[in-house]
């Protein structure tokens, strides 16, 4: 159990990050709000509670690593990094702009970004290399990899899943953003993924299922994952576009910037929610 104060602080932080996501994508004129908002609570828990990291020393050798394999959710990652202090928050306003450092998909040149991603299906393999290096160097850091649900259509994910259990990588924790939608439609219509828990257990993983917007469940799943002798997959049931009513569960906001009116409405919704939290 976690004290209500910790949970409330994380909820407030998540709202701030959601506002950055909406702002930065609106200002950029393009980007992926749906999948950014669905992983915001998870990223918030990682950067503001779970992970051992130091924004003043991004290369600290003992740090926990985060790989955003679903790189199109970069706006949420950038917002979390900026809020954590890796770079100035105002840089978020220059997302996707020429001669600026925040690329449309994560680039290793951004402080705090561990690996460039964007082409789906590769991050779990990279996380395996990091986890193997940790074992080799006898460092006790953890590697977190955030996967999209559509992303696990990719064959390389299953090569990686097999090798993670083969190499006994209990320092590897994958989080599946199970929002149920991929670009062309619901995942079970486009390319069925279920039964996800059975598939991953068959590949030798410890599997947990949580509500990916419940801060306490997220924190507790990390605690349990770290006790496992196997690599862990946390299936986080999420809502695409979470926090903005007209984006929630809608396919069209996978990769589309809000209009000015939508942006204003989205911000007012998030601000109202924030107000309720502070009351």
């Amino acid at each position: 159990m976690y004290p209500p104060k910790i949970i409330k602080n994380l909820q407030k932080r998540a709202l701030t990050i959601r506002k950055h996501v909406v702002d930065s994508i609106y200002l950029a004129g393009s980007g992926h709000p749906g999948g950014s908002l669905s992983i915001t609570d998870i990223l918030t828990c990682l950067y503001f509670h779970e992970m051992h990291h130091d924004p003043k020393n991004p290369q600290m050798e003992t740090r926990d690593r985060l790989v955003l394999s679903k790189g199109h959710s970069a706006p949420a990652l950038y917002a979390a990094l900026a809020e954590a202090g890796y770079f100035e928050v105002k840089a978020l306003n220059k997302l996707r702009k020429i001669n600026q450092f925040l690329q449309g998909h994560p680039s290793i040149s951004v402080p705090g970004v561990e690996i460039s991603t964007g082409s789906l299906g590769q991050g779990l393999s990279v996380g395996i290399g990091m986890a193997l290096a940790g074992k080799l160097d006898k460092k006790d850091y953890h590697v977190f990899v955030i996967l999209g649900d559509g992303e696990i259509d990719e064959g390389q994910i299953w090569e990686a899943a097999a090798s993670a259990s083969h190499f006994k990588l209990n320092n590897l924790i994958a989080i599946l953003d199970r929002n149920g939608l991929q670009i062309d439609g619901p995942t079970e219509e486009i390319m069925s993924l279920e039964p996800i828990p059975l598939r991953w257990r068959a590949f030798g993983w410890h599997v947990l299922e949580i509500d990916g917007h419940d801060i306490e469940e997220i924190l507790m799943s990390f605690d349990e994952a770290k006790k496992s002798m196997k690599p862990t997959l946390i299936i986080a049931h999420t809502i695409k576009g979470k926090g903005v009513s007209f984006m929630e569960g809608t396919l069209s906001f996978h990769g589309k910037s809000p209009t000015k009116e939508q942006w204003v409405k989205a911000l007012s919704e998030l601000e109202q929610e924030e107000q309720e939290l502070y009351d």
């Binding site: 690593r65 690996i115 590769q122 990279v126 990091m130 986890a131 080799l136 097999a162 090798s163």
Partner: peptide
């Protein structure tokens, strides 16, 4: 033997893991 890893017939995964190792100074 501790610094050698055979990934089986899974070249894509091997390349990704190689990248991960390299981010850790290898």
């Amino acid at each position: 033997s501790n610094r050698f890893f055979d990934f089986g017939v899974a070249e894509a995964n091997m390349m990704g893991a190689a990248a991960g190792f390299a981010t850790c100074g290898k």
